Computed example of a mutant assay.
Amino acid sequence: MGFDQFLSSPEMEILIITHRDIFQSAANSDSRFSDDYANLTAIIRLDKQDMKKAGIKEGDLVAIKNNSGKVVVKALQSTYEEPHSGTAYMVNGPWVNALVSAETSGTGVPAFKYIEAKMERSKESSITSFE
């Protein structure tokens, strides 16, 4: 247990873009409740500078919350070469779905693509479970 766990982590606003992933889809076809599926889906990919600004290292757990819910997922550095400060990417799945607003503005279709949230390094020691 390191001293840094007692230091507060800055909370930052992010815009989450969801996407499909062929590897996650393959794991999903095996079982949505498998460790493989969770390892490929319970992650958020962040801009390198955003990670540095928030004091987040590759593999750290982060808490993401908005008015719709809160989840803890693993943070990984984005593979995009272009900087995308303030924008993060998550694979479609139960973790990001917990952050999707039920408000549909009369369309009946939730906004799955652009999810506004706040993020900080998590004080919890595990990823949010299915339960």
Rank of each mutant, 00 (worst) to 15 (best):
G2Y: 15
G2R: 14
G2F: 09
Q5E: 15
Q5G: 13
Q5P: 04
F6Q: 04
P10Y: 00
E11Y: 00
M12S: 11
E13P: 09
I14L: 13
I14P: 04
I17V: 15
T18S: 15
T18W: 06
H19G: 13
R20N: 06
D21Y: 02
D21T: 05
I22P: 10
I22H: 15
I22C: 09
I22F: 13
Q24D: 11
A26S: 14
A27S: 03
S29H: 07
S29Y: 05
D30A: 13
D30W: 05
S31M: 06
R32M: 15
R32P: 06
F33S: 15
S34K: 02
D35F: 04
D35Q: 14
D36V: 10
D36A: 11
Y37D: 00
N39F: 02
A42G: 13
A42K: 12
A42D: 08
I43S: 06
I44S: 04
R45C: 08
D47Y: 00
K48L: 13
K48F: 10
Q49C: 04
D50S: 09
M51Y: 10
M51Q: 11
K52E: 15
K53G: 01
A54L: 11
I56R: 01
I56Q: 07
I56H: 04
K57E: 15
K57F: 02
E58S: 06
E58L: 00
E58I: 00
D60T: 03
D60I: 01
L61W: 03
V62E: 12
A63Y: 01
I64M: 08
N66V: 10
S68W: 13
K70H: 03
V71A: 04
K74N: 14
A75N: 07
A75G: 02
E81L: 10
E82K: 12
P83A: 04
H84G: 01
H84F: 08
S85C: 02
S85I: 06
G86T: 03
T87A: 12
T87D: 09
A88I: 03
M90A: 04
N92C: 15
G93K: 00
G93R: 00
V96D: 03
V96E: 08
N97P: 08
A98L: 12
L99Q: 02
V100F: 14
S101I: 06
S101G: 04
A102W: 04
A102P: 04
E103T: 07
S105P: 02
T107W: 04
T107G: 02
G108T: 05
V109S: 06
A111N: 14
F112E: 13
F112S: 15
F112P: 07
K113Y: 10
Y114K: 09
E116Y: 11
E116M: 14
A117V: 12
A117T: 14
K118A: 05
M119S: 08
M119T: 05
E120N: 12
E120Q: 12
E120C: 14
S122T: 08
K123W: 01
E124Y: 08
S125D: 13
S126L: 12
S126E: 15
I127P: 08
T128E: 05
T128G: 01
S129Q: 12
S129C: 03
S129K: 14
F130Y: 07
